[in-house]
Design a protein around this nucleic acid. Structure first.
Length: 956
RNA sequence: GCGGGUGUGGUGAAAUUGGUAGACACGCUAGACUUAGGAUCUAGUGCCGCGAGGCGUGGGGGUUCGAGUCCCUCCACCCGCACCA
């Protein structure tokens, strides 16, 4: 009987489901282990072979831990709200709820195909009211808290109110958007609206007029991490900066903790670096400058306060609040022209054209507090409104951008640092001796920074300050498909939270979910939902895609709870995620927000750990091969002409232009190789798929193909239309998606699992290669062949295993266990191959040995293992059996083959008893026949013996 | 520009603490079996060389009895960030 996975894989899937083999209990005496995958967006394209890579790895690990006596939480769910799901729904003209559910069903079926050990009873969907009730609830908790910078934790807003009533803003230590001061008396006399506005300045979830990333094409604002290179991450649409009244989360309050706690995480250095760069901590100083003819002082932030004597001008951001105020009448024209220019530029242009500095003079001057010199104040695009104070003192001698600006506008440059004693030091290195700097002269830069900071504080015009690049997270989206905000407004616009009894606030059903091109959200159009009987109105924006994913991992612990986001007992049992597997693309989005929410819940005593994800593994992308043929650029109405890759090369040199057209990989022969091409049949298929090219001419060195007729050249027997291959992301638009279902259909789920692992290290990107899978399939048949001969006869024999059999087995146990622990799954697979080959060689069919082998392979090939376990044991599930235990005794060798080297080059090998003494080995090695001829005429100076490893003879 | 990573046969890769480089596969070559082969089995397969032997982990240099592994330096590619004051 041959290995036929199709015969038994479905049977066991059903068995596992019927018998709830993977059900997880929260009440267990066993130690816990939480293995989590980043849950997928159920997009319309379905899963491709890249998605399961991480799921397979985590499933193997979960199964391994389970067999080792852990109570393993290994759940799966769907990140079903947010832009991708909604864009799909819009494109296909169906309601997002319907398309999302359809996509989920497809994902569920595809995932089910692969034999994962998920406890499906714990499935979560972020778009279900029972789930987002608690997303809304956590949002309200954020709304009801502020960040106490003294206690360094979140504290209820009621405490803040009490403080204001008694002391006003005096002595308040809280993270805020801007510093405000008022007395207790003033507070008490304020209207509800005024008080509310002040509280908004402190809430962890707050509403404020901010410059946001507005994406017209998507009809919504986006968070910073959703914008890449000035365009939206989803769809690549232009993004502009625009002031809007939006909800934000005060993640910046947690910046320091988010940075510091990275240190204890078992994440890759790259991942930690990405996060710490995103947080972007810098230390410097805040300095106030007087403005000539005004009693206001302008605040700047600098990391180089020591260079203040070289500050010959100031630059403030064009969006800075004070621009109008400090612009003098005769500069108004110029400034307003410049502002128009800035406005006309897209975010994209602003980011890509950074070499050219631009600006305009406001006409005002600041006063250098140390020498009373007048410093002209300019506005310039290169100063960002969001960072620091939106205003800098420019030191052209010590900053490249300031230098360019000064050169362009003819501003003064004063050298303030002598770097002559530091060869190769760059303009921005903090090295050198201060010159032209009054009381700082002669000091080293680092000392000067200290000295000037002290002086600033003495004079009361500044102080050391820490700054972060991290921005608060914009939390409003002007879209339909998201969690509604549990917020209502009175007629003054004061925001009130809904009571928990009113949660979930369900998303109203509507077929009018198109995003508006202006700034109103689709929900705003549902008047009966927005307007309440008491005259209050609802918030019409929805929450962003990252809302649900910021806490979903906690919900799996107790997914059906309707009283709490999860039962405290469950949370205290499962605590945190021990192993989290997912892609690097979430480095600064999801992973940052989750850590932030988790820390907030930690402050509230609702979770027992500071960090949600202890260990993180980033699976590499499985890339697809994209195949192109080339369409000649042509005049309107003329015939389509395609050429092969070679022809394109030559014709391009003659000035012709071509457009690469992707071809379905199914039509390409030998795809991914140097010889990838379309043959006659391939071209017919291509035309069938793209009928608009029905009459096109196809040309290659092998001939011409047109209307089904092939005219050969150079004696060719068929059309060879060479394609151009590229390796890239698998995507529907590139027609290079491989569906795991097809692979499972052909080879079986176990083979698919094993092959994806065998492909290479889990963290590495690698192209999908259709050829290699045969090797794994062959291995599975060989493994099966240890149990059955080709006629289906049972080969397994009872008896005492031989020493040799035990050695092969335990070598495999050691290798596989060690390699699972270090997430080296590709080498596990090769260890199985080695063991199988070895057993085959000695015709081993011992039952005790094979039982162990079946348990060893169970996490990798769960169906095969279950089938063989059933044949061996007659019942029970191998997945409830224990993992094989290594007995080192079986690995001990009687004799060892030593390599013998001369001056480090291997010249011979020889077998010696394992317990041979160093002296004997030395003597024997030198006496070795093969070695002797190398020693002729040489003197042996030294012999190095590393027991059980090697022998090296040093000659001179 | 800054930060991180990678570089090993024709290909995917292995080598866990400095100790036989290329395990395990794919591919390729030859052979066996077979009505057939895109099935199976056997042998071979880093490169150069008939051979003895030499060379070999991106290049160059160093430490060491011994370096893919450690140090210095240069190069290439990939990823992330990028006017952050």
């Amino acid at each position: 009987m041959d290995y036929k996975p199709r015969d038994f894989e479905p049977k066991w899937k059903k068995y596992w489901e019927d018998h709830q083999i993977y059900k997880v209990d929260n009440n267990s005496e066993q130690p816990k282990f939480y293995v989590l995958d980043m849950f997928p967006y159920p997009s319309g394209a379905g899963l491709h072979v890249g998605h399961p890579l991480g799921y397979i790895a985590s499933d193997i690990f979960a199964r391994y831990k389970r067999m080792n006596g852990f109570n393993v939480l290994h759940p799966m769910g769907y990140d079903a709200f947010g832009l991708p799901a909604e864009q799909y729904a819009l494109q296909h003209g169906v309601h997002p709820a319907i398309s999302t559910n359809k996509n989920i069903d497809r994902y569920r079926q595809q995932l089910g195909n692969l034999g994962f050990s998920f406890d499906w009873d714990r499935e979560v969907r972020t778009c279900e009211p029972s789930f987002y009730k608690w997303t809304q609830w956590i949002f309200l908790q954020l709304f009801e808290h502020f960040y106490d910078t003294e206690k360094d934790k979140a504290v209820p807003i009621s405490i803040l109110k009490e403080h204001f009533e008694q002391n006003g803003s005096q002595g308040i230590q809280a993270a805020n958007s801007e510093s405000i001061s008022f007395t207790a008396q003033e507070w008490v006399e304020m209207t509800a609206k005024e008080q509310n506005d002040i509280l908004m300045n402190y809430r962890l979830a707050y509403r404020k007029l901010t410059y946001v990333n507005w994406c017209e094409a998507l009809g919504t604002v986006l968070a910073n991490d959703e914008v890449k290179d000035g365009v939206s991450e989803r769809g690549g649409f232009p993004v502009e900066r625009k002031p809007m009244l939006q909800w934000s989360l005060r993640i910046t309050a947690y910046a320091e903790r988010l940075l510091n706690d990275l240190q204890d995480l078992e994440w890759s250095e790259a991942m930690k670096k990405m996060q710490s760069n995103w947080i972007g901590r810098s230390t410097g100083a805040q300095v106030f400058f007087e403005i000539e003819g005004s009693d206001r002082k302008i605040e700047i932030y600098t990391t180089r306060p020591d260079t203040i004597f070289g500050a010959t001008f100031m630059v403030i951001a064009p969006e800075h609040d004070w621009v109008a105020e400090i612009t003098t009448p005769n500069q108004e024209e110029e400034i307003s022209q410049y502002l128009d220019y800035v406005k006309s530029r897209s975010e994209r242009e602003r980011m890509s054209e950074t070499k050219e500095v631009t600006g305009a003079f406001t006409g005002s001057f600041a006063i250098n507090p140390f020498n009373n010199e007048k410093i002209p104040i300019w506005i310039g695009e290169y100063v960002l409104k969001d960072y620091g104070t939106g205003c800098i003192m420019a030191v052209p001698a010590d900053d490249e951008r300031d230098h360019r600006f000064a050169e362009k506008y003819g501003l003064r440059i004063i050298d303030i640092i002598d770097k002559s004693m530091y060869e190769g030091a760059s303009i921005e290195d903090k090295k050198g001796k201060m010159i032209n700097s009054d009381f700082l002269n002669g000091m080293e830069v680092m000392d000067a920074i200290q000295a000037i900071n002290d002086r600033l504080e003495e004079m009361g015009i500044g102080q050391p300050q820490v700054n972060y690049k991290l921005r608060d997270a914009i939390y409003s989206r002007q879209r339909y498909w998201g969690e509604p905000f549990p917020i209502v407004y009175d007629k003054d616009g004061v925001a009130y939270p809904l009571d928990i009894s009113e949660l979930p606030l369900e998303l109203p059903d509507s077929n009018d979910f198109q995003p508006a091109s202006g700034t109103t959200s689709p929900l705003g159009r549902i008047k009966e939902w927005v307007n309440l009987d008491n005259g209050y109105t609802r918030e019409t924006d929805t929450m962003p895609g990252f809302a649900g994913s910021s806490w979903y991992f906690l919900r799996y612990m107790d997914p059906k709870n309707n009283e709490e986001f999860a039962d405290q007992k469950a949370i205290n049992y499962w605590k945190d995620v021990d192993l989290y597997v997912g892609g690097t693309e979430h480095a600064v989005g999801h992973l940052m927000y989750s850590r932030f929410w988790h820390k907030f819940l930690y402050d509230k005593g609702l979770v027992p750990t500071k960090e949600p994800f202890r260990k993180l593994i980033n699976q590499g992308m499985i890339q697809g091969v994209i195949e192109f043929i080339f369409l000649e650029k042509q005049k309107e109405g003329s015939q389509y002409r395609f050429v092969s890759a070679e022809l394109k090369e030559t014709e391009e040199r003659n000035g012709k232009e071509f457009i690469p057209i992707p071809v379905l990989v199914d039509y390409v022969s030998e795809y991914g190789s140097d010889n990838s091409h379309l043959d006659n049949e391939g071209i017919e298929n291509f035309i069938g798929w793209r009928p608009e090219y029905n009459d096109a001419v196809f040309e290659s060195p092998s001939g011409v193909f047109k209307n089904g007729n092939f005219t050969p050249k150079n004696g060719a027997v068929k059309m060879i239309m060479t394609t151009h291959s590229e390796v890239g992301k698998m995507s529907k638009s590139k027609y290079n998606v491989i569906n795991p279902d097809d692979v499972v259909e052909q080879y079986g789920a176990d083979c698919f699992r094993l092959y994806e692992m065998f492909l290479g290290p889990i963290e590495q990107a690698k192209p999908w290669d259709t050829q290699g899978i045969d090797g794994v399939s062959k291995f599975l048949r060989k493994f099966w062949g240890l149990f059955f001969d080709r006629n289906g006869n049972w080969l397994v024999k009872e008896g005492t295993p031989s020493k040799e059999e035990l050695k092969i087995l335990h070598t495999a146990i050691k290798k596989v266990s060690d390699d699972i622990e270090r997430f080296s799954f590709n080498t596990c697979v090769s260890a199985f191959m080695v063991a199988t080959n070895d057993f085959k060689k000695i015709n081993s069919n011992n039952k005790l040995i094979l039982e162990e082998m079946v348990r060893l392979i169970a996490p990798f090939a769960p169906h095969l293992a279950e089938e063989l376990w059933y044949k061996l044991e007659g019942g029970g599930s191998v997945h409830h059996a224990s993992y094989p235990i290594l007995n080192e005794e079986y690995l001990i060798e009687d004799s060892i083959e030593y390599p013998i080297s001369i001056n480090g080059k291997k010249r011979a090998t020889a077998e010696f008893p394992a317990d041979a003494s160093k002296e004997d080995l030395e003597k024997e090695a030198v006496a070795n026949q093969d070695i002797q001829k190398w020693l002729e005429g040489k003197t042996v100076r030294k012999v190095i013996v590393v027991p059980k490893r090697m022998i090296n003879i040093v000659v001179g």
